[in-house]
Design a binder for these strands. Structure first.
Lengths: 218, 218, 218, 218
DNA sequence: CATGAATGAGACTTCATTCAT
DNA sequence: GATGAATGAAGTCTCATTCAT
């Protein structure tokens, strides 16, 4: 792996573990066993490293939250589709959790990054709307257009904030993958009131699935 | 006003404006036109100032989210009660927004504060549940016990994270009181699917109220 | 007791326990439960407090190391006289140990104090010579004038430095009154080679006395 | 010379001249014309610099106070051997005088250093005993085992404390190499009563040597 | 590409001392 | 005599960043 990529991955690891504020560029270099000078050869400053991490994140976001092509959908039960989206959401949230933990700070320092972030969020929003439309078209949920907009926004917010929200409530030891399954259950709770009869069955199946995973990891 | 209180208020103002990370103890002292020594006469370190701010916040939280006594309730239409709670939520969120913007960072640095925070959240949670129970008893919403728990959690999360969530989406200029009215509308959206017919009417009334305020402030 | 004296005694206690460097004027005031302003009403600065302590010390030094009048001497066996001097030396050293622990520092900061110190030492030196002369005249020790000068100087040095010397060698717990008895034994060791037969007997008696005390305190 | 070593030497110089307490890390950096950041690149804190100085001192102590191998001894008159030890003692004391001037303070702040110091003193003590045994075996001094122990301790104490003791007695101008020759004379005074006839002659020769040096430097 | 010593602004904090009451 | 809030210079240390090799 190239040094530039190693820096991005090493920084991400340390940021997630210790918070961006507590990790200096020297920490990153030491962690990778390279010199600070070398780090600054690849990145002009700390901000650029964060930008590099964000670019990876945006790339993953783009790939994962593309509404499926029709032919693919028909090959897959709706519940599977929802499952894969939920998994994606929380996997990303977990892998880049340092970012959400300091979002206002990080974005306020870097106008360029803020613009990239906003753009990514707009694209994501469109994709989420399309995805929810698919679910409605499949008869899993039933609601008006403006209700669908609102639901999507709530879901996006729950997904974006879940780890932060839980981190604050729990002790350090409890912050594990477990809170991710609980986040998924919470999202299903948000959707359930809008579900059709058919949708409700599938949601209950998913709930059972995640509940067993929570139990298993205890 | 006593210097100690001036420090707490001045620090809160600066933290909200610029982020806690970007405000040094010297900034606070200069802002209040006192010497750094004087600041440290009243607070042993920066952490203690943050603790002082938090104590104010917890105090307000306690007072505002107490379920109303029955006699008070009967004198007030339910919609007014809900209005006052919504106002409280977002006023607090706005007044102490620096805190939520850096929650993981701030709590991870100070175990004592983390415990105070957790305790305050537990008390808040109990009060929120009691308040929602009142709404159910008043026939505004209809749902099972476990659904009520889930709804309360979603509402708490939306309230806690709204400003963060929006801050990230919007440009600096747009972060004004306006986003608060949008947050209230978003919370009403979360509640609406659970509303009874009677409840729905009242929610629509509130929505109209906030929508007019948003329009007015543009 | 007057506040001024309480300050001197309180400062002495804290200095001995923690070292002068680690005790601020605020510590002293807090220890005595008075205000810093009050402390500075009685003493213009920290240096003056140290001067006050020194004056007490010099006063005690003067009283204790006066050669006895002839009539008093004849009423007291020589061994008793030596015992009382040895006790005095180490009691002073112990009570003002902070002072000797930082002698160069303290004196270099305050020319006035340095002069007082030098003067006190000169007076002490004369008294010690006189005392040793008495012992020689009593037939306890036998030596030439220049040897007597050298012996006195060695004894003075051992007494002055003993606590410092031992403090450095031992762990904190071991620094107790015990090291004082050991210091007395060391001084007797210095004198013994010069003792007459009669003197040697008395020295052995004193050694036995201190050795039993060391044993007792273990 | 490497920067790390320059820092150690520069700090030692300044500490000896002004006392460790009065020399800040900024003073050291300014003295060497390097930035404070550079100083902290090489040493994590002021304590580590003091540790570095001590390590140099301990190293010299170890080398200089090794009892001579028999073959070396036979090639050298005893008086020369004693002369070289005395020179070593006072050269070290002089070169590291700041350390002894603040021993209790410095050691109480740094447990690790205290342990290193104690260990060095134990090794030194063993070497001193061996050296004194050699002198006894060479017929320079005559005494019992326990007397030899006591004598060694007195000599160690005189050597350790001499500069402190004299510093306090004299004005700043008088604190020069001169007091070192006086210290050597004082140590000879301590040994003389135990000397054999042969030893006494050699001691007198040494005394004459140092006395002429004292005279010369006035 | 890579090293690692070096920079310097500035963060947090301490503490002897002052002064209005 | 006494209070206690206030001062401000200065000390220790950090860290993003640079640059000669």
């Amino acid at each position: 792996m190239k040094t530039k990529d190693r820096i991005i991955l090493g920084a991400l690891t340390l940021f997630n573990q210790n918070g961006e504020r507590n990790i200096t560029t020297n920490h990153i270099a030491a962690h990778l066993e390279i010199s600070p000078g070398n780090l600054y050869y690849h990145f002009g400053n700390k901000e650029e490293i964060i930008n590099g991490i964000f670019d990876n994140y945006a790339q993953e976001l783009k790939i994962r939250f593309k509404p499926m092509a029709e032919e693919d959908q028909s090959n897959m039960p709706s519940v599977q589709i929802m499952l894969s989206y939920l998994d994606s959401i929380f996997e990303l949230m977990w892998n880049y959790r340092f970012f959400y933990a300091n979002l206002p700070d990080i974005l306020s320092r870097d106008e360029k990054l803020k613009q990239k972030y906003t753009q990514a969020q707009l694209a994501l929003h469109d994709n989420l709307i399309a995805i929810m439309n698919n679910f409605r078209d499949s008869g899993l949920i039933a609601l008006e257009d403006d209700e669908l907009q609102a639901l999507t926004k709530t879901l996006h917010l729950v997904a974006s904030c879940w780890i932060n929200y839980q981190t604050a409530q729990l002790s350090d030891k409890e912050i594990t993958e477990n809170i991710i399954y609980q986040g998924m259950l919470q999202m299903l709770n948000v959707v359930r009131p809008m579900a059709t009869e058919q949708g409700r069955e599938q949601i209950l199946a998913l709930e059972a699935h995640y509940r067993s995973r929570v139990a298993a990891s205890c």
